[in-house]
Nucleic acid binder design. Structure first.
Lengths: 232, 232
DNA sequence: CGAAAGGTTCGGTGGGGACCGAAGTGTCGC
DNA sequence: GCGACACTTCGGTCCCCACCGAACCTTTCG
C-alpha cells in the first residue's frame, strides 16, 4: 500500500519552482548540463547542484558525467508520461498577452514540437488523426494500434519489429496536447514514428528547443504515406 | 505552455504528509468528513481545516456542506487517475515485516478492493483477464473495449448505453495494480463494471475500507458470465 | 604550465508553512 | 433554550529548505 510519506516525498520533488522548471525543460527528451539548467531556471549554479541531487536521488532524473560536465535527463519515459499527465491537468485556462518574441516562439511550438520522444502540436495531432483515419490507430476506446497499424509501421515506415516489443511501456498512449487540447499519439509507437521522421530528415529541430519543422522531403513523404496535405 | 510555478503549486498540494494521507484515503471514492480525515491523518481538526481549504482551492477536492458536517471527496475521476499513476511509481520495492493485523488487512486488500471507482487486487486483475480472454477487451496495444465488449456490457451486464458515452474519460484505461503489478481495467468501463457488481450484490465492501469480497451469488454470476472459477 | 570554465562544498540568511490550543460560530438533539 | 458536537479562526512557535556568494576541485584549452 502506498504510504502518505512516500507520496509526499515524491510530490515534494516537483513542489518547487526551480525543480519544476528543470523537469519541464527536460521534457524535450534530451540531456542538459547542470549549468544550462541553472541558467534556464534562473538560479545560481550552486543552487542547481542541490536540486539536481534531489531529483536524481528521487529517481526522476539520471546523470551522466563527462569530463567537467554533468549531463542529466529524465530517468525514463514513464517520468515524462507522468509529467505530461500532470501538466495536462494544469491547462484549463489559457494565459493571455505576452510579448512578440514569446508569441513567435509559441507559434512555432504550436505548429510542431517534440513531447519527450514523440510528436506534438498541430503536426502531432495531424499525424495522429491521419493514422486514425487510415485505420492504423483506433481511438474508439482508449488508444490502440490496429493490426494494420503494426504492419504499416514495419513495412511502410521501416521500423524493426523488435523495436515494437512493448515492455512496460504501452504501444500506444494518448497524450493530451497542451496547445491543441486533443490527444496525440504517444507511447512506444509514437516514439518510433518521431524517431523515424527525425532520422529520415522529414522533420528537424528548430534551434535548440523542442520546436520542430517539416522539411520539403518530409512534406512529400507525409503526403504519400498518410495523405497529409495541409501542414500549417 | 505549462509554466513551472503552476506545476510546483500543484505538486505542493501533495507534497505534505498530511495532505497526501488525506488524498490517499479519499481514493476509496467516497466522501469523508473533515474530522474523519483529521483523525486518519493524525492532526488536530484545526490543522485539517487548513489543508482541506488548500486541496479544495487547488481543485483536487470538492466539498459538500451538510449541516454541521463538511464532506469532501476527490474532485473527479481524473484526480484519482493521477493519484494512481503517481502511486504506481512509488511501489518498486515491497516493504517487509509488519504485524499480524496489518498483514490480514493487507491480505484482504490484495484479494480484492476498489481502486477509486473500479475493481483492483486479484479480483480486478482476474476480471480484466477474463474479459480479455473472452475477446471483450483488447490489451494488444493499450487498453480498448472491443465491439463485442460493448455489446456484452449492455446486453449481459445491463449497463445503459448512455452510461458508456465517453466524455473526457476514456472508456478503458489500464490502471497498474499495486499488489499484482499488472494492469487492471479502469476508465469508464471499469467503473460501470464495479458499480454493477456492487449494486447486484455480487461483491460487497468489508467494513468501511476499500477491501471488497465476492459474495456467493457473485461467485456463480462471475462463473456464468466470465467463466471465472478460482477466485482466491 | 597557467588561465578559464563547469561543477561542488560550505556557512549564513530569510521566508514560507505545518502545527497546536484556545476561543468563536453554526447545527443538532433533548 | 441548553448542552453537545463539528468545524473554523486566530495567534504564536518552530523547522525546513531555497537561495546566494566565496572558496575549492577538476577538466580543458592555449
Amino acid at each position: 500500500m502506498t504510504d502518505a510519506s512516500e507520496l509526499a516525498a515524491f510530490a515534494a520533488l516537483l513542489a518547487d519552482r526551480t525543480r519544476a522548471a528543470m523537469c519541464l525543460a527536460l521534457l524535450d527528451g534530451r540531456a542538459w548540463t547542470a549549468g544550462e539548467l541553472a541558467t534556464h531556471a534562473g538560479v545560481a549554479r550552486s543552487t542547481a547542484t542541490g536540486h539536481l541531487d534531489r531529483l536524481i536521488g528521487g529517481g526522476l532524473l539520471v546523470e551522466a558525467r563527462q569530463g567537467r560536465h554533468r549531463y542529466v535527463r529524465l530517468a525514463d519515459p514513464s517520468v515524462a508520461g507522468l509529467l505530461e499527465d500532470i501538466s495536462a491537468r494544469l491547462e484549463p485556462v489559457t494565459p493571455p498577452a505576452r510579448g512578440l518574441r514569446a508569441a513567435t516562439a509559441d507559434a512555432a511550438l504550436r505548429r510542431g514540437r517534440t513531447c519527450y520522444d514523440h510528436l506534438a502540436g498541430r503536426l502531432g495531432v495531424a499525424v495522429t488523426d491521419a493514422l486514425t483515419g487510415a485505420g492504423l490507430l483506433d481511438q474508439a476506446g482508449g488508444f490502440a494500434v490496429t493490426g494494420d497499424g503494426v504492419t504499416w509501421l514495419i513495412d511502410r515506415l521501416g521500423v524493426a519489429p523488435a523495436q515494437l516489443k512493448a515492455g512496460r511501456r504501452p504501444l500506444a498512449r494518448a497524450c493530451l496536447d497542451w496547445t491543441e487540447r486533443r490527444p496525440h499519439l504517444g507511447g512506444l509507437a509514437g516514439a518510433r514514428v518521431c524517431e523515424t521522421f527525425l532520422t529520415r530528415g522529414w522533420v528537424n529541430r528548430i534551434g535548440s528547443g523542442r520546436a520542430v519543422r517539416v522539411t520539403p522531403s518530409g512534406r512529400s513523404a507525409l503526403r504519400e504515406l498518410l495523405g497529409l496535405t495541409d501542414l500549417d
